[in-house]
Design a protein around this nucleic acid. Sequence first.
DNA 1: TCCAATTATTTCGACATCGAAATATTTAAC
DNA 2: GTTAAATATTTCGATGTCGAAATAATTGGA
Lengths: 146, 146
Amino acid sequence: MRKQPEKSQRQALNLYVKLMRATNRVTGDIHRHLAADKLTHSQFAVLEALYHLGPLSQGELGAKILRSNANLTTVVDSLEKKDLVRRMRAPEDRRRVTVTLTDAGEKLIGRVFPRHAKIVEHEFSVLSADEQEQLATLLKKLGKGK
Amino acid sequence: MRKQPEKSQRQALNLYVKLMRATNRVTGDIHRHLAADKLTHSQFAVLEALYHLGPLSQGELGAKILRSNANLTTVVDSLEKKDLVRRMRAPEDRRRVTVTLTDAGEKLIGRVFPRHAKIVEHEFSVLSADEQEQLATLLKKLGKGK
DNA sequence: TCCAATTATTTCGACATCGAAATATTTAAC
DNA sequence: GTTAAATATTTCGATGTCGAAATAATTGGA
């Protein structure tokens, strides 16, 4: 006997490749559409978070979009340069920087988000609603780890 | 009626977030382990491809590891600098560059790969064998797109 | 045979990202 | 109240990545 370990490793390695391929395809397609509006994934993700959740600190944004605090500075810098967001030191805790959408930012994300949603919907439309539910359950477990 | 489109978009958007979180966790953990041997994902992927498939051209490697040709130049550069691979113009078609493992490269990947396999196995061990099979099927569909 | 189109790699310029160190501010312990 | 530790952001230096243009080599007509 004693073949199990190898088999389970092979299965995991194949799964890893498939996870990468799937992610790669989905993010690649989304990237192309966001690039049409000169937005990176992170920039879009920040605008979207502010759009749906209201003003947030950079730390909160970083946690939300899975990027480092250092990177958040850069992302917010570039959004601020394009006048899509505004920075304000939080008066109740001056270590924090509260980021808010400008009118232009609100307008842009209001236009881009619905299209983004359609594209994501399309990406996953190779799977039935049931399959999507299954996938969600499995990915949730995987995302938590142990 | 007319609520379906919104629901299916919400499902897809949630799924997208879960896919990113799961991928992020898995690659993050793997990254930390590869970094211990001063290897990036791409460098490791190249070594691994050569190890299991034998000498390949850069174009073939790029397709394998899902990176651009431009990037392959850089990745192979750095592996060559560390004396882990060797470049040779293919004599039968001198446009192509054949990449081969050196003895040092073979030794390194022979040592690192088994550990990598164990880590990947561990990453996915939150899922049962059955669940992994399900996930593989779903990701395969998703990776192909339509 | 010669030339145009194709293919493989490299170079170039740009940018996203990270980790570590630096800075600013708040909180908690004494 | 003062000071040490914790927290939030920024700066710095480094690296991985891409797309487009440049270069080199091959192939398929005419």
